[in-house]
Amino acid sequence: MTLKGRGPALDEAHFGGESQEEFLSRIRARLQGAGYVADHPSFPAGPLEDEEQASYEQKAERFMKTLVELGGEAYRAPSREEAFRLIRDLLLHRDVKGVLTSGGDWSQCRAILEEAGIAVESWDEVAFSHGEADRELARADRWGAGLLWADYAVAELGSIAVLSSPRQGRSVSLVPPLMIALIAPEALVERRRTVLRHVAALAKERGVPSSLTLITGPSRSADIENDLSIGVHGPGQVIAILVEGS
């Protein structure tokens, strides 16, 4: 059975439930009964507003240390080209035959990888509608790794942040068993709060991206007798490369 399309806007009321007005007025009545003023909330100010202070060097060290502690790998490359060669070596070492790339310019990398016999597909080239998604993604084995440029990296957490966009697919950092993220110097921030503030500003300017994901180390679970296991659903291997120089 095929799914119906997105089609014209739906009437929410068609799905039943209560009207927004009824629902909120019940809440309002309760709150007003408790003496709250619910019109123009002013947010409570707090003492925990310290801004970014660390130097690039401090951030880089902290990021790498934190990610490695979480079971990821972290490298520094003095140039893009060095980074791409490092990727090639990492992939060859793991016997990865094909990769999927997304976000940013990968043409130089592609040449290096293809020369080494690694198939490269770009997210821009992958064309699938949902009907085909199962089949395409089910063959994800052909992508032993997802390569992407991170939108942000968070030093305090060892997190890699990715914003969805037409050129940055969610699946790239999700479906393959290995994820390699390249991080430009300007993408590395000290705190998660900075990322959230940036994205909030971005949202005000031109709408919020459809998703923001922070990836903090490999996929893990402790659901079997509290015993740590890696790579449950998401990638079991996470590699970050800080790409330095111009």
Partner: peptide
Amino acid sequence: QRATSYTTIFSGPRRDGEKDG
């Protein structure tokens, strides 16, 4: 944990031109 492995902040359906979501 400082953070869980994944923090997903998603905001509605895929936008025009996006291939997944």
